[in-house]
């Protein structure tokens, strides 16, 4: 065990996996709790909410180079509060963690950064918008126009994002329920980014363009105690419709939720049980069996598709490990998207 593992403790005050992935099932004592009918206020809510235990700025993008080759990138900044407060200096209880990855058809590169708040090394400001950790940043005058960079030892990227649509609020106007017990988070997205820029790979730089999807979510106890992980899909169909769907796996059964997003930005929340997410095939990745081919069906909308990982190698070997990578869609609809699987 190392200092890195020590930090894992910092992020997981309750260490047992049975308590949910990354401690997300821990108790929320002393922290604020998401309530229904919250009125979002922007740009304020693009910034951090230190009295909530956990929060993230999560961007994924499906990209192609000039030859039509598929790529995926991930840029995530997590905030985890040891205490529901913020102070200046080293004793700030806010811990920040950055994850970045580039996935090519046959390789996956990732990097991780860790910092605490209070010393200027990492943080988020709402106006002008900037989320940063070390030299990585996601910034722009507002959330509609962003510049995104990250670097690892052998890869990096520099991308420009332009929003083509409005923000999407999941669940009940941004109040997203995560279990039958009522655990919930605030959750909104910007799924309409046009992305353009450069990927730096060990052997070459590649000009790419494509579509990006930003998730914003904060909570203090998003998982129920029996829930140990989730499978999360963000799918963009060639016809312009988009689907966000997740399945939270628990001892007492799975909990699913989804949002159907039309090209004009109209979003329809879909309750537990509307969407069926079924693993079709698992692949042995880093000594774990990870589902890399799925059947996603949403009978209400006539969706019955197979979702396959572009490469099974998209394992994030970070402090808490998970699978996150680009997928391709075939069946009733064609398209591309991103898949995240935790707790395997």
């Amino acid at each position: 065990m190392s200092i890195r593992a020590f930090i894992l403790f910092a992020l997981i005050p309750i260490t047992s996996w049975a308590q949910g992935f990354a401690g997300l099932g821990g108790s929320a004592e002393g922290f604020s709790r998401p309530m229904p009918r919250y009125s979002f206020e922007f740009p304020r809510d693009h910034g951090p909410h230190p009295t909530y235990r956990i929060e993230w700025w999560y961007l994924t993008a499906n990209l192609k180079d000039s030859e039509g080759q598929d790529y995926g990138i991930q840029w995530t900044l997590f905030r985890s509060a040891l205490k529901p407060s913020e102070t200046d200096g080293w004793q700030s209880p806010q811990i920040w963690m950055g994850h970045a990855a580039v996935t090519t058809p046959d390789n996956h590169y990732f990097a991780e950064r860790l910092s605490r708040g209070g010393v200027g090394q990492a943080g988020v400001t709402a106006q002008p918008f900037e989320a940063w950790i070390d030299e990585w940043h996601m910034r722009g005058d507002d959330l509609d126009t962003l510049n995104l960079t990250a670097n690892g030892a052998d890869f990096g990227y520099d991308l420009d994002l332009q929003a083509q649509g409005s923000l999407i609020f999941h669940g009940d106007a941004g109040y997203s329920v995560k279990s039958a017990d009522g655990q919930a988070s605030y959750y909104y997205s910007q799924p309409f980014y046009a992305v353009e820029g450069t990927l730096h790979l060990p052997d070459r730089d590649i000009e790419v363009s494509g579509q990006g999807w930003l998730d914003r979510e904060w909570s203090s106890q998003p998982l129920a105690e029996d829930q140990s992980g989730w499978d999360w899909f963000s799918l963009s169909f060639d016809g312009g419709d988009k689907l966000m769907a997740f399945r939270l796996r628990g001892d007492r059964g799975d909990f699913t939720a989804a949002t159907w997003i039309e090209p004009n930005g109209h979003a329809t929340p879909l309750p537990d049980g509307s969407v069926a997410l079924t693993p079709l095939e698992t692949t042995r990745v880093e000594q774990r069996d990870v589902p890399t081919r799925w059947q996603v069906s949403l009978p209400d909308r006539g969706v019955d598709v197979e979702v396959s990982a572009i490469t099974s190698k998209a394992w994030m070997g970070t402090r808490f490990e998970y699978w996150e990578g680009p997928v391709s869609i075939s069946g009733s609809h064609e398209g591309r998207g991103y898949l995240e699987m935790t707790g395997y």
Binding site: I3, R4, I7, A10, P13, L114
Partner: peptide, 24 residues
């Protein structure tokens, strides 16, 4: 800086002990 400093055996020993402290 306990968040960034390289591995320290002392920390390892303490966190593996019977009453590992809360990092907070």
């Amino acid at each position: 800086d306990m968040v960034a400093y390289p591995a320290l055996p002392a920390i390892t020993q303490i966190e593996q002990g019977a009453d590992a402290p809360n990092p907070a």
